[in-house]
Amino acid sequence: MLSITNLQAKIGDKQILNGINLEVKPGEVHAIMGPNGSGKSTLASVLAGREEYEITGGEVTYNGKDLLEFSPEDRAREGVFLAFQYPVEIPGVSTINFMKTAVNQIRKYRGQETLDAVSFLGLMKEKMKLVEIDQSLLNRSLNEGFSGGEKKRNEIFQMAMLEPKLSILDETDSGLDIDALKIVSSGVNKLRNSNNATIVVTHYQRLLEYIVPDFVHVLYKGKIVKSGGKELALELEAKGYDWIKDEVAVA
């Protein structure tokens, strides 16, 4: 589904990604871990098409297409979803209105008929149940005055609405207490199936107790320096990131 080859990117004069290689197949969950400043969020942003980053080399193939050629909105329409680490506030625009616009623009792109109010509401109710979110939250201005947990839950609701093929969760666990973490994770797990894939970007192992990855990759200085199964996350939790840094230094 996703094939990243030697991806390099910089922001301003600062080189952040130094040759990332990653293969993601349908049905898989990949966790990207690493210390602060290792380039985890940059990788997520570059895949989503954020324009501040300049791609300096490498390729990203998504379902056989060159992902980097697409505009950010077309990536979304092609099924790439980014759950933001810091969801943005849009005053005066409710989540419902926002999602209505998004769903219908995506449907138009795919040559599907746009949803009328009734069908949209039906879809929304179904997804609300799935991720256990209350409609009162969806009527409010998007993310304005939301708690950390509400923002993240709202991200997962949007993910459910848009049914992406590739979801990238950027530090979705940050700012969550344990109850919120459970709800958010259970939402993500319900959305998992054999046709879609998930990349979980996280600092801590905690989230991976709930969203169990098939693969764990450690990012350090803009490169994946170690890959393994879910047990790698536990090892990192126990030993910290220093041993990885040492390994890299020796190599």
Partner: peptide, 18 residues
């Protein structure tokens, strides 16, 4: 804000309108 909208499939002009 605009990037957030785009990431949900909304083009830039519509994002500004929204």
């Amino acid at each position: 804000q605009i990037f957030y909208c785009q990431q949900r499939g909304i083009d830039e002009e519509s994002a500004v309108a929204l």
